[in-house]
Design a protein around this nucleic acid. Structure first.
Lengths: 242, 242
DNA sequence: ATTATCGGGTTGTCGGACAACGTAAGATGA
DNA sequence: TCATCTTACGTTGTCCGACAACCCGATAAT
């Protein structure tokens, strides 16, 4: 009797352009690395004005589905893990998350991620860990920026060792949220550098031995230390991360 | 002596428009709910053509920072968790992740998330769980779509109970990756419905009692069941989720 | 008071135009 | 013949001007 009609979609044309090309990329009809037709060609094929097509292209860009390659041609690109995580991280920051939110999540996932990493990391990855760790020896005590990089980079490497793309992106987005609060901490907690270095050393040792339990245990200590440093520095755990 | 200069950024103007407005939103100078000037006004203020401004606006749209509200005016919106997660999830799917990647991550986070949920969920949330669970009784055995919705919705509710925005977004993106493989499973595993219902019942009971251990334990069983169903259905764990 | 009509303002789309830049092909030199 | 320079062309980024469709608020009609 009373048949329900779908609300008829009245999308603007530029959105259709976006969705159409997105669908083709997603379905694999446009392979990563392939180059899209020129704007002129696209507007011909779609039967739309170049301005309209351009607006759709800008959205593809922001979605990370295409990039301007050489010759400025548009290149299809499956966004790599890093950029995906960056986007996710930025969105999280927009949300106004607090340090306690980040820390809780770190506690929840990092130790288990370290356990997984212990069972999967390769020789090369261990070497990369040790090479990065050596940078602590030549570290200027006041070079906070470098230390932040080392700390976050360490987490990133652990994430890579899990050999799991979903976990990788998840951890990466999380890790990027560590940097801002860590910067705050470093200015006020002189002992932090040493504690970070020691914890990393223990975790690296555990990883190299494939000792998942120890890796998880020390990762938990390491993450807890972050929170401790935050408190010691007299900062409010409920402050916005960004 | 030899001072290093930053490579001078030669961003196109539409990108500057995007970044400028984004920065203002991020810094809180533009509050969520506030409405942006009209396109004409913006192009005046920026000293750019309306077309150029429009391209920047399209990017803000895709980034989820603005929406067209009533009167089609652009209104600033901090993207809510759901849409952030959706974007993240879509990006993950683009990556071509496999079911085993998703499952591994589920095993890693869902039980602990359930434990956290047990210690934090409110009366209303428990009631919502029970209301949703009641839907199983009136469920048509062949209505796979409805069952998928119930299954994913359950995970979402658990995520909400954690009362942690970071975890919420993380879990939500993950949960959205469950639906496609689950659809495949349901067609070939007739017992799945009952198993899902029972596991949910146990978890809900644990949550209502604030029994974190039990919640985690059953959540683990629940997630493992997903993988089991996937194998039973004769599907390849290394297949792409999407 | 409710409904119908009208006007102004805004967006979505269009067509055309041009400078800047990179590419590629052709011209020039060793 | 091969390398290098020059030139013409194509593409992008930006601009201008224009118009229909649409939404909202104000006014008029029932």
């Amino acid at each position: 009797m009373n048949h329900r009609f779908e609300p008829i979609a009245k999308e603007p044309a530029y959105l259709k352009v976006f969705r159409t090309i997105e669908a083709d990329i997603l379905a694999g009809r446009l392979e990563p690395g392939a180059s899209l037709p020129t704007e002129g060609e696209l507007s011909n094929q779609f039967g739309l004005n170049r301005s309209t097509v351009r607006e759709g292209i800008r959205q593809l860009e922001e979605a990370g589905l295409v990039e301007r390659g050489a010759a400025k041609r548009l290149i299809v690109c499956r966004p790599e893990a890093g950029s995906v995580a960056q986007r996710a991280s930025r969105s999280l920051a927009h949300q106004g998350v607090t340090f306690i939110d980040v820390w809780e999540t770190l506690v929840l996932v990092e130790p288990e991620a370290a356990r997984l990493a212990a069972s999967r990391c390769t020789e090369e990855q261990i070497e990369a860990f040790e090479a990065a760790h050596a940078a602590f020896d030549t570290l200027d005590a006041d070079d906070h920026e470098k230390l932040v990089e080392l700390a976050v980079g360490f987490f990133q490497r652990v994430a890579e060792c899990t050999d799991n793309d979903v976990l990788l992106v998840t951890l990466q987005s999380l890790n990027m949220l560590i940097a801002p609060p860590l910067r705050l901490v470093l200015g006020r907690a002189p002992r932090a550098t040493r504690r970070i270095r020691d914890a990393q050393a223990m975790i690296i040792e555990a990883l190299s031995k494939g000792d998942g339990d120890k890796a998880a245990e020390w990762m938990l200590k390491h993450v807890n230390d972050l929170k401790r440093g935050f408190s010691v520095a007299g900062l409010d755990l409920n402050d916005k991360v960004l």
